[in-house]
């Protein structure tokens, strides 16, 4: 016990584990999100510091003291009105020029399915099942009655489209530079599909399937996180998120196919 405590404090004293700020961004759409977050925080800081300076100035200048008398005459200041108008206009700009376009792009401007990697992500307590359509690009039939320990998405291997389907657990592998379309669903409770480095987050809700898409621009090994409380194992519901070069991805795909036939 004491050892773990002293380790924790050793990190604190060594200034380790104090990371902050946005994580790296490997997605093509993430820059717009980051720009909005950053702009907002500059705006917030500006307002806060402005208010803060005003507040401190007031506290000093208008402190109660001998011979000081509050000015109770009814005053009307023009500056706050302009400040508020400014805030309104700024917020409207944020909405119209920053937030709406990003959301519209993510929700309606889907990449062509033929040129994208389409995968199904099926969340369960407490794992991410990833279902690839294989070479034929078609998902095989799935059925709830076929779900068991070895077949987490209930894939019907008898189905012609299912022969080449690949199912992985807690491992999402994507090729860099190619759009990925995720069809997100859940088997049991609500989970939150979260790729911090790709600025992707969406709730996986049982009974519904949501399409989402992203495109990566950097190779690396990252993590899938769960954002929504899903039960006792919520904290360890993490998966690998591997972004590979097209060649490495092809190799991985071949390996998986080979494993299927064995």
């Amino acid at each position: 016990m004491m050892e773990q405590l002293s380790n924790a404090w050793k990190n604190v004293l060594d200034r380790k584990g104090f990371d902050y700020g946005l994580p790296i961004d490997i997605s093509t759409h993430g820059a717009a999100i980051d720009r909005l977050i950053t702009t907002l925080h500059y705006f917030m800081a500006l307002l806060f510091i402005g208010w803060g300076i005003y507040l401190v100035y007031c506290l000093v200048r208008f402190r109660d003291r001998e011979g000081h008398q509050a000015d109770v005459s009814e005053k009307h200041f023009g500056v706050p009105k302009y400040l508020e108008m400014g805030i309104v206009i700024f917020e409207a700009c944020l909405l119209v020029f920053f937030s709406y376009p990003v959301w519209a792009k993510l929700k309606t401007d889907f990449p062509d399915r033929a040129n994208s990697l389409v995968v199904r992500v099926v969340a369960e307590q407490f794992a991410w099942n990833i279902h690839y359509p294989g070479r034929d690009g078609k998902f095989g039939k799935t059925s709830i009655d076929l779900i068991d320990g070895t077949n987490p998405v209930g894939l019907d291997r008898e189905d012609a489209d299912a022969k080449d389907d690949i199912v992985t657990i807690n491992q999402l592998v994507v090729p860099v530079g190619k759009p990925v379309i995720v069809e997100l669903s859940a088997k049991d409770v609500i989970h939150g599909f979260f790729l911090p480095v790709a600025r992707v987050k969406h709730d996986a809700i049982p009974g519904m399937t949501f399409p989402l898409w992203f495109e990566t621009k950097e190779v690396g090994e990252f993590q899938i996180a769960c954002a929504q409380l899903c039960g006792v194992g919520h904290y360890k519901m993490m998966g690998q998120f591997l972004v590979k070069t097209p060649e490495d991805f092809e190799q991985w795909h071949l390996d998986e196919e080979k494993a299927l036939t064995e």
């Binding site: 946005l22 717009a32 999100i33 980051d34 909005l36 977050i37 907002l40 944020l94 909405l95 920053f98 937030s99 990003v102 959301w103 993510l106 939150g192 979260f194 911090p196 600025r199 992707v200 987050k201 954002a227 929504q228």
Partner: peptide, 10 residues
């Protein structure tokens, strides 16, 4: 704002 909420939500 939805766009920034994508990253910060939950």
């Amino acid at each position: 704002l939805t766009a920034s909420d994508i990253h910060l939500h939950d």
